[in-house]
């Protein structure tokens, strides 16, 4: 297999970053604007969980800045 002819594999970390940043923003802002709460709990779950998802999403985006290695030098086989 010739690596130079193939594009490097799509970075899953970036994809995860995009979806969770989107969900985090959506849920967080929605929680902030509406402050809907189910009767059973006393805090704004949408807001706090939205913030947590936003952090997860941003972390994935940060990790994806460095392009993925297509080959790990440690994986050379020593038999």
């Amino acid at each position: 297999m010739n690596d130079s002819e193939k594009p490097a594999m799509l970075d899953l970390r970036r994809l995860l970053g995009i979806i969770f940043t989107f969900y985090g923003l959506l849920l967080g802002i929605y929680g902030l604007v509406t402050a809907h709460q189910p009767r059973a709990i006393s805090f704004n779950l949408n807001l706090w969980w939205g913030i947590l998802m936003l952090i997860v999403g941003i972390l994935f985006l940060v990790f994806s800045i460095k392009p993925p290695r297509t080959w790990d030098p440690d994986d050379d086989e020593h038999i």
């Binding site: 969900y23 849920l27 929605y30 929680g31 509406t34 809907h36 709460q37 189910p38 059973a40 709990i41 779950l45 949408n46 969980w49 939205g50």
Partner: peptide, 11 residues
């Protein structure tokens, strides 16, 4: 249904 409101339900 008991603990999630609109939004978290979607998630």
């Amino acid at each position: 249904a008991k603990y999630y409101s609109t939004g978290m339900i979607g998630l």
